[in-house]
Amino acid sequence: MSGLLLDQVSKRFGSFTAVDQVQLSVPKGSFVCLLGPSGCGKTTLLRMIAGLEEPSAGRISLEGDDLTMVPTHRRNIGMVFQSLALFAHLSVGQNIAYALRIRGTDQAQQDRRVNELLEMVHLDGYAHRPVAKLSGGQRQRVAIARALAHSPRLFLLDEPLSALDAKLREAMQVELRQLQQALGITTIVVTHDQREAMTMADLVVVMGEGRIRQAAAPIDVYRNPVDAFVADFIGTTNLLPVTRSLQGGALLWGHALEGVAMPAGRSNAVLSIRPENVLLGVPGSGTLDATVTFVRDLGATVEIFLSANGTTFVSVANPRERAEVLVGNTIGVSLSAPNCLVFAP
C-alpha cells in the first residue's frame, strides 16, 4: 500500500532553490533516511512533509489523502526536532500527554497512555519529573514518546540523535529502529550521518543540491552508487582520475586497469574504489606500486595511507591479514575490476 507520496515537490526561497522537483514514494511502514551534506535541502523537505513550510510547487499525499494544503496541526503527524523542543514548564508526563490533552482525551486514558509510552522508551516512573532534571539521552526518549503519543500516521525526525555522544547515539539508533519496527509506523529521518542511515533505514535517499541523487536500500547505495557524489558520501571511498587508453580501457596514471570500462564517449572519468577493496602485496605484484605515507592502527582495523603520482589514497585491512608495512615502504597495490566503479566526472 502506498504510504507517503512526494510528487514533483519544490521549494524556492527567493532565487535560491532549496528543494528541486523531488519525486519519492515511501511504502507504508517503512523507514526512510534523508541523507546529505548540510544545505542539501533535506531538512526543508522534511519540514514540507510536516507542513511547517509550504511547497512552492508539487503535491504531498499520505495514504491517498492530499496533505499539500492541510495545516500542520491537522496532519496527524509526530515530529522530533533537532533541539527536541520539550516544553520546559511541563513535567515529563505532561509533555507526553500534550497531544492527547489537545485532543480532549480524558485524564485516566491520558495517564494510561503516558505510562505505556514511558515503558516503551524505558523511562518507567519518570512521569512527574521536570524535564530540566533529565540527561540528554532521557530527553531524547521523552521527545520520541511525546511525538508518538497520539499514534500518528507519520513519524518525522530531524537529526534526532546529533546532540548525543557517539556511544549513546549508536545505542539509540538500534533502539529507534526496533521501536519503529514494533509499531510499523512510516518513519522519515533526516541525518547527515551515513552510519546512522545504514543502521536504521529500509530506504536511503541521498540528496545533494536540492535533488535526490539516489534512493535505494542502504547496501545497494553502498555497493552501487550512481555517481561519485553518492559514492563519496556513503562510506569512505578513494576517488582517482582515470583516462581512456588506446584500446578503450581505463588507465590510472598510465597503468591499465584490466576489465574496467570507461563511460561511453568520455576520455576522462573518476574511479571510485572502497578502501577495503584496495589490496596490498609485494612490490610489482599489483596494478601499480605506491609509497606508504602513514599507518593508522585502530586496533580492529588498520588504515594505510598510500601515495602514488602525488595523490594520496587509503587502504583498510584487517590487522591479521595485513602485511608488515612501515612508513616509507614501497608496496604493490591491486585494484580488482569488480570493485572498481567508474563515473563520468
Partner: peptide, 29 residues
C-alpha cells in the same frame, strides 16, 4: 524564544492560537 517550541506544539495537534497560549505564554511567564 525557541521557534521550534511553537512548531512542536503544532505537530502535536495544537492550532496556532492554542500553541501560543500553551507554549509561548508559559515559557514567558
Amino acid at each position: 524564544l525557541d521557534p521550534t517550541l511553537l512548531e512542536a506544539a503544532k505537530t502535536l495537534g495544537a492550532s496556532p492560537l492554542q500553541a501560543f497560549f500553551n507554549v509561548v505564554v508559559p515559557a514567558l511567564r
